[in-house]
């Protein structure tokens, strides 16, 4: 057993971008094999919209008015499931230490996990939307609505990834994450519901500018805050 027959060619340290995408690739490859995270989020989401469908036996007009609320409630709770699971798989097998031991900027770990979480959330949303459209007889395939969903999901996963990195270090992580996340995510959830509801009610684009601006500002602020704080959050 002899090592080092081959010289190891090593760059100074991998760039933020390379390390980020290595983490994203790893997360997607692992998830595509196990489907543990997406299947849990998906089953939960489908159950919620089916329960709402039976609970709210409403006419078409009222259904349209509750659509935004039901959709974002579903996305928020399913997203919390995914965020918890995504970070706890790193923690439970000590893999978070493996990531922290790499000579990379620790922001790469945040961005890698946040992009993976966003991808999982978008996959679930892409499946939930057509099912919801059929069950509630509402057309959700509109570019402007999809844009709002994308912005809302970015904000939610940006803050959720940071908070899940904090909560995963505690014994009560499953309970703690929603308690920490929902109050902080209220602006993004309210703005998303408002913008989605207005679009579904037939409002003009100019009428949703206020919630849209809130979403954009929220996304930028929380990505920046997470970029600055993540190193301190994961440090013992």
């Amino acid at each position: 057993m002899v090592t080092n027959k081959q010289p190891v060619t090593r760059n100074a340290s991998p760039s933020l971008l390379k390390a980020t995408f290595a983490i994203v690739r790893k997360d997607l490859a692992a998830e595509l094999r196990s489907f543990e995270l997406i299947s849990a989020m998906l089953v939960f989401s489908l159950l919620v919209i089916i329960i709402f469908n039976f609970a709210l036996e409403l006419d078409v007009k009222v259904r349209q008015s509750v659509t935004a609320g039901v959709l974002w409630t579903t996305f928020a709770f399913a997203g919390t499931l995914g965020l918890n699971r995504s970070m706890s798989t790193e923690k439970d097998r000590g893999c978070m230490d493996g990531l922290l031991l790499a000579p990379v900027d620790r922001s790469a770990i945040y961005f890698g996990k946040a992009i993976s979480n966003l991808a999982f959330m978008l996959i679930v949303e892409a499946i939930v939307l057509p099912v919801y459209s059929i069950l509630y007889n509402v057309n959700l395939f509109r570019l402007d609505l999809i844009g709002v969903i994308l912005l809302g999901s970015i904000g939610y996963t940006a803050v959720g990834t940071l908070l899940s990195a904090m909560s995963v270090q505690t014994r009560t992580r499953e309970v703690l994450l929603p308690i920490l996340l929902f109050p902080v995510a209220i602006p993004v959830l309210l703005a998303s519901v408002k913008a989605s509801g207005s679009l579904l009610a037939g409002a003009e684009f100019s009428e949703i500018l206020t919630p849209l601006n809130i979403l954009i500002v929220y996304d930028i602020v929380f990505i920046s805050v997470a970029f600055m704080l993540f190193d301190h959050v994961v440090e013992e």
Binding site: P14, A30, R33, G94, A102, P103
Partner: peptide, 27 residues
């Protein structure tokens, strides 16, 4: 450590590739 710091849903080679990329190993 006593924990392997490995991803169970990746192969041995994929785990090694991932860590090699995190350490900036060129080839």
């Amino acid at each position: 450590s006593h924990m392997p710091l490995l991803y169970p849903d990746l192969t041995a080679e994929e785990n090694m590739k991932f860590y090699a990329s995190m350490y900036g190993i060129a080839d």
